[in-house]
Each structure stands twice: as C-alpha cells, then as structure tokens.
Design a protein around this nucleic acid. Structure first.
Lengths: 232, 232
DNA sequence: ACAAAAGTGTTTCCAATACACCCATGG
DNA sequence: CCATGGGTGTATTGGAAACACTTTTGT
C-alpha cells in the first residue's frame, strides 16, 4: 500500500431563504457560490472553502474561509456533513473534501465579494467538480432536520410571524406547509415562544400577526424517537 | 496560513450483539478493539483502521483494513460517521480521522487476530487517543437509526424469532423493548416479513416461535418525517 | 361594509403503546 | 396438567393533519 501526499479541503454549503416579506413572488432557498476565474473549470461555480490549515481543525477552517465570503456573525449554524474522498474527484494532487452545512438567517444581508452570489437551489448553475451532489446532500439533510430538530432558528430572523416562518419552511422543504399546524407542532415541542408583541399589518390590511422567536438558539434534537422510545 | 503535511486515517467502530440465544445472561452490544503492542499508548485499546492509501476512497480503505481483523462477508453494514480533526488528537504528525460505523450480525463468529477481541460497550477498557468518544458517538447514531431505519438487518441472523430480535434491540438500545410492539411497528412499516417456517421450542418448552427476516438487506430510511410530512 | 390576513376550535386519523387473553409445546 | 414462552385482540393515548370558523386590521 502506497501513501502519496494528500491534501484536505473543507467546503461549505451555505443556505439562506431569500425573498421573505418582499411581497414579490415566493421566497426560495439559495446557496452561496463563487465563480471560478481560472482553470480548471473556469467559469463554473464552486462552494466556498479551501485548504485546511496546518494548525486548525475542520470547523475552525470553515469559519476562517467563510469569513472571506460572509460575515461570521451571519452564520447561525454550522455542522459537519459527509466526506468526499474519490481519489479522482479533482484534477491535480489528491484532495479529500469535508463538507459542511451552514445556515444564514433570512434577515441577514451580508456583503459579498464580486465573484460570489446566491443561487436558487432549484436552478443551480454549471458547477465545478463534485460540488453539485454536495449541495443536494446538504439540502436533503436540512430538510430532514427541519422535521425533528429546532434547526429553523438558524434560518429565521430573531422575531418573526408564523406566516413568515411558514414561508421559510416551505422554501427549505420544497412543499407546502400549513401555518396552523406548523405553529402547533413547534409550540407543543416548546421550540418557539410568543414574544408578546405584534407586528404591523401588511399593505393589504389584515390582522396584525403575533411575533414569535425560537426558544433556544442552539441546535437541539426535539423529537429523537420516531418509534421504539424508552418505556414510560 | 501554512499547510503542513497531513495524514488521513480511517477508523471503524464495529458493533456486534453477542450472547444471543446462549441461555446465559442477557446479550450485550460489543465493539471490536485491538490492543496496542507498541508506544505510544502501549497496552491501550484501539479501533481497527489505519492510514488511507493513495488510490482508495474512504470506504474502500475501511473495507481493506477491516479485512485484516474480520472476514469482509461478515460486515453487513458500513457507513461514514464524523471526522475528528483536532490538530493534536494524536502525537507525531498531524492525522485526521474519518470514523465509520460497521455492523456484524449476531450469528457471525469471525476469526480474530490474537491482539483483537470484542468488548462490551457498557464497560470499555482504557482506550487510546480519542477513540472512546468515537465509540460513544457511533453508539448514539446506531441507537437513533434503529428507530427510523431498517438498520437492524445488519445486526440479526438472516432468520430470527421476534424474541431474539427484541434481545438484539434491547442490547443495542440499552433499554427494554416490548416484543409485541416491536413486531407490529416493523411489520407495519414492512421492514420484516414472516418466512412461514417456525423454530423449535427452547429447553423449557413453550410455543415454537415463527421465524421472520428483514424484507430488505439494504439500508433504508423507513420513517423519514417525524413531523411536517408532505401533504397527502 | 368588505377583503385580507391571523389565529382558534374542532374533528379526524393513525401510529404507537399497554395490557389482557389465547395458543402450542416440553416436562 | 401446568409452567413456559409465543402470539393475537383490543383499548387507550397522543401527536399531527385537515378544515371550518372567528378575530382584527386596512381600505
């Protein structure tokens, strides 16, 4: 068995639901990509990230590399996902990629470098290397976790109306979610709490919505057992 | 930012439920460990694995390295888990570890090298480096997945009685599971199927148990949505 | 007054649990 | 015939979905 030199990179799939409360069309889930200026794969779109530094662990590295693209404070959740290790996944020297899921709240409007922008996940551009399956995998994980964790806190503004929350869940899940049931599921699990205040009515009138916020802004599993839960 | 040389290793947390149908005591979840003969950490117990080869992906590497410890055909399920990347996690050169979850059916009795044996997860020995948290993490993942996937197929013999299945679930989960409910949950989800045949009664008599098998012996999520499932 | 949006009440459904009871075998 | 373990029937629970209806605002 030979052990050639192996580089290690981190790549982040950073999602944001964009177009909330804009009044124009439905909000949609977007992913942060930058366009390659040089070969290989010039012109194609890449996930932010880069080579792991000598003295950092993976999470530190992702945070450092994302700081070039978006303000760190905007990233409300960051979590390790799968490793992509095909020896031929990128040309040149062998590089193993650890992928991360990053979430940015809807309200945030980070300044972006000129080569970087948000793309709707429903219509991804031509992507470099194996970055497209990475986005798809991250999207699958996000959708699954919305159903049994409080991960929504990382996609929403601090305070929000239930209808806004519904729009965000719809965009991230890709199907219609009923606002009433969403409210009750999350209230029952004590994931969201009423703030007590209300927002203004929209342009077309209507009752002013009560504002909610996530009870905790730390990732937590809220429904661990689909079945076979411990007795009692 | 400096990029020193970085090695990459794979480590497998291989579980088996041992002591099923032995008549002696309760079966227990065991993990496969080998004892280090040399420094560093001489005498402590390690997870099987080793350095990633130049031309293999992670899964190939784990399979290759496990082949030295157990027969490949005995490993019914193998899946990537977390990466451990603390720069100081092992002495010497920097080494990133990708961990895997491996499962061996109860009936299998693989021949083991002399430095290798099964240890009950409930009383782990002194372990080398950061291997203990790796075992704990893998155990947590296994327990969670037993509740919403068909992953049990990789822990059981091909054909089994429900009471045997219950013993295996109890050992892996660490709490009591009701055989009746286990049967119905898995039948409803079409995870297990009756074979039509029955086993013999045990030494103390009793009705002969019907035999079941897992409908599919490929990993599958059987209860994707804890809540917020798509309409319809 | 009316439309629009938010929120509540109520019904239905179904998976999962709990437990009582029946079945088949060995000794 | 009875102890032992296996299997079935059935009631209860509780979370989630579906939907009708009420409340509160702007125009």
């Amino acid at each position: 068995m030979t052990y050639g030199s192996t580089a290690h990179e981190v790549l982040a799939v950073v999602f944001q639901v964009r177009g909330v409360d804009s009044g124009e069309g439905q909000p949609a889930l977007h992913v942060l990509l930058w366009q390659r200026a040089l070969d290989p794969e010039r012109g194609r779109w890449s996930l932010p990230g880069g080579r792991l530094g000598h003295d950092e662990d993976l999470t530190t590295s992702v945070r450092r590399q994302l700081a070039e693209k978006v303000d760190l404070r905007e990233i409300a959740h960051l979590e390790q996902l799968a490793v992509f290790s095909d020896p031929a996944r990128v040309p040149g020297g062998r590089t193993i990629a650890s992928t991360f899921l990053g979430l940015v709240p809807s309200a945030a409007t980070p300044a972006l470098p000129s080569d970087t922008c948000w793309h709707p996940v429903s219509e991804l551009p031509e992507m470099a290397f194996d970055h497209r399956p990475m986005v798809e995998h991250a999207h699958t994980r996000l959708a699954a976790k919305l159903s049994y964790t409080n991960i929504g806190f990382a996609l929403t503004p601090t305070d929000f109306a239930i209808s806004t929350l519904r729009d965000i869940y719809c965009a991230a899940l890709g199907y219609q979610v009923d606002a009433t049931n969403l409210q009750r599921v999350l209230e029952r699990r004590n994931v969201i709490t009423r703030t007590g205040s209300t927002a203004r009515s929209g342009r077309a009138g209507g009752r002013p919505p009560a504002l909610y916020r996530f009870t905790e802004s730390r990732y937590r599993v809220t429904d661990e057992f689909a079945a076979l839960r411990p007795p009692g």
